[in-house]
Design a protein around this nucleic acid. Structure first.
Lengths: 233, 233
DNA sequence: CGTGCTGTTGAACTGGGTCAACCATCGTGG
DNA sequence: CCACGATGGTTGACCCAGTTCAACAGCACG
């Protein structure tokens, strides 16, 4: 059931009929294993297939000057390059985070499906709009928050998004993100991310060992991060 | 011809037929004068009409902690809250920048139009995707560039977007933006924006008096800002 | 003719960056 | 089985880009 999480995600976003769910489920998709750090799509590439995350994580990253900036993380159920259906080429590298399984659907197949249904088109459109809403929060985070709040916000957002697809258990989630990823996503140096995470640990807000992150005081963490999950669905 | 610039914008984004252009042109729209600093839509509001810029400028701003962060600027032809058609409520204040004229179309009218046309839906969808692409660049700008490059990038982007709607004359454009706006858009303090702009002037890259901004060495400025206009259409 | 906004300048300060170690873990190849 | 190099986390010392505070000038407007 490769499309399962993706359908669940769309379903959360817009109510789908039995028939619509079936139409998506029968889309011919090829599955593929992606290794940690492997580039799935390269910036500037003209894409002809939409990728969706079945298991694991992807992120989008872009070189700007001598730094690399992460533009987005993608969790199971997300379709990170849905926008390439209408806007080409892609403006960032799409990279695997930890061992990951992705599916791919041809643009042509997707276009054919959407041509036949205004409602499904709207569901997919809405999906991209939520992506855009997340981007806007990232702008707010990067432009206006201090380091501690930036990192806290990122963690809150990931937790909330994983909760939506049932991957948050008891305030815990698995994500093989290194401190370098956090640094690149928050526009901070690795060293300072390290100290910031230690501060979060020290305050008893999170636990983070290996790839397991736990929210110890979610309420407190959200307050610190000025986070509300209202924009995610 | 209130819709003129908006149609031109859509046209640039996706090829429209004579008939489609007419369908948009006859959409019932109410025009309205917006004063400098006047709030058109308030964060959290459930919107029932889409606003488009006829003349002047709007920007989206969001309070985060004790700062306010500008999330986007909108130039004539833009429809800043098109996303509210599918995602409510709006996540930022929409504010006038200088004396501005906006039009408004009821969601119901727009939905009716789009229900009848897969192609128009795609054109509007694409419009929101370009907005999203701009947001992603802002993330890159805010997360990875130094002050000088941030400000330069903002100026380059505005110039390029205004050029698309014919409002760039000979490297000059009118925009009644204050240094506070630049500060809020770039996540910098006003004082430092002031010094940064002086540096840009000093290097002979721009001239900026009152509300007239001129690119004196566009090529040089773009290099400094690491700017390429590829993502704007 | 004050009052408030915008731009400008100087001086002192600080959050976060940079540089440079060092440690633990882990996969790899000899 | 161990030596190794690579990667990720951690720490300390120093530095600097950008912030903060404060003052002032020009100007527009009621």
């Amino acid at each position: 059931m490769p499309h399962q999480k993706f359908i669940a995600r769309l379903q959360a976003v817009e109510d789908l009929s039995e028939d619509e769910r079936r139409q998506i489920a029968v889309l011919p998709a090829t599955l593929r294993q992606v290794a940690d750090g492997e580039t799935v799509l390269r910036q500037g590439e003209t894409v002809s297939r939409c990728v969706f995350v079945v298991h694991g994580f992807l992120y989008q990253t872009r070189i700007v000057g001598d730094r690399s900036q992460i533009l987005a993380f993608h969790v199971p159920g997300d379709m990170p390059c849905l926008h390439t259906l209408l806007v080409s080429p892609i403006d960032a590298d799409l990279v695997g985070l930890g061992p990951t399984i992705v599916g791919a659907v041809a643009h042509s197949q997707l276009k054919q499906l959407l041509d036949g249904s205004v409602h499904l088109t709207r569901a997919f459109w809405r999906e991209t709009l939520i992506d855009a809403a997340i981007s806007r929060r990232w702008i707010a985070r990067l432009g206006a928050q201090a380091a501690l709040a930036k990192v806290a916000h990122l963690i809150c957002e990931l937790a909330a998004r994983l909760e939506l697809v049932g991957l948050l258990n008891d305030g815990c989630f698995q994500m093989p993100m290194t401190q370098r990823h956090v640094a690149d996503a928050c526009g901070l140096s690795i060293v300072h991310v390290n100290r910031t995470i230690q501060e979060l640990r020290h305050r008893g807000l999170i636990a983070w060992e290996g790839s397991e992150i736990e929210l110890l005081q979610p309420e407190e963490l959200r307050r610190l991060a000025d986070f509300a999950p209202d924009y995610l669905s």
